[in-house]
Write a protein that binds this DNA or RNA. Sequence first.
DNA 1: CTCGGTGAGCTAATGACGTTAGCTTTTGAG
DNA 2: CTCAAAAGCTAACGTCATTAGCTCACCGAG
Lengths: 187, 187
Amino acid sequence: MAVRIRLTTAKVVDAALELLDEHGAEGLTLAAVAARTGVATPSLYKHVASLGELRGHVGLRVLEQMTDRFTDAILGLSGDEAVRALMHAYRAYVAQYPKRYSVAPMDPLHDDLQRAAGAKLMEVLYAALRGYGLEGSEAVHATRRLRVLAHGFASIESSGGFGLPEGLDETYDQLIRMYLDDLRGKS
Amino acid sequence: MAVRIRLTTAKVVDAALELLDEHGAEGLTLAAVAARTGVATPSLYKHVASLGELRGHVGLRVLEQMTDRFTDAILGLSGDEAVRALMHAYRAYVAQYPKRYSVAPMDPLHDDLQRAAGAKLMEVLYAALRGYGLEGSEAVHATRRLRVLAHGFASIESSGGFGLPEGLDETYDQLIRMYLDDLRGKS
DNA sequence: CTCGGTGAGCTAATGACGTTAGCTTTTGAG
DNA sequence: CTCAAAAGCTAACGTCATTAGCTCACCGAG
């Protein structure tokens, strides 16, 4: 009665993501992951160093998934179209996977495991702005502003912070317009 | 050896806030609060129904503290000056109490305990925009946009999400300028 | 001043969880 | 075919939150 399950770190993370989606961050427990993967709790330590490390792997997966989505979204687009597509993809991701996003590391560059994925995600945001010919710190500021808008709106929306959902599409459109107008105005 | 401490719910919440500031949200445990207040863990249940309820009280305190700060900040100001003061007060609060802000409820209107405080905080944001003569849904959208900017920036900054802290003041100024320009443009 | 009841504290116990130690058994490389 | 490493297991511990039930300090009524 051993070595029949053929567990891997990837499968453990898969189960963790399911649990996260279904029961939220507090439902992501080693006991629950063990139950789902059909294994005793301590056996998980053969594939993952600790609950904290598992959380790190989960965060990494989320970053990668976001990168994939956003890359697809802006493919073949540039300028305002690219920005709009990116912003909508961002909001859509958070709406589809609110629990995952709430667990996505905000500072991936400070974690060895997540640094590369974080840098790649930043690259995608940066790429969406390529058409504007921004240079040096201008590009840095523009990327930061973009992140502020997308993250700010999506995180408030996904935690129900806007009260009634009425007119949220319009609010988001206004934010995007504001951003684009500003970008045009200072080029 | 009883009734010597004269604990109250307020004192329990005080201790919880200290613990939160010092050790983060995960350090906010009933055992730690009990130790700090000089009481056995189960005794806390005389003042608080559960850990969850204690968290609710803590969140409420944070909302109230934010409301006080922001009210002071915009007192006697109007128009662009009021908006600038509010935005800077928001960022300053999060910078001073990052752990508290991370525990502030994003959806206070959905909690009986926090609804009134949440509404009051919204009123302050709304009041900062009074000078612009916005009506109906225009005011709603403008308030939402303001929140998106302040929360988006402050939450990313406080979790170290911007990488190097270089030029963050400039980024924030740009966001404020962008917001004000937009407000002017559509009035 | 006393006496009784309420309420604020206590100890003991339970169950969930993360984690460690030490074992057994399967598996696959040579 | 052998055997060591990999992957599973059980047992045990410490930390939590929470519940049950006890005790004693305090306050108000007489």
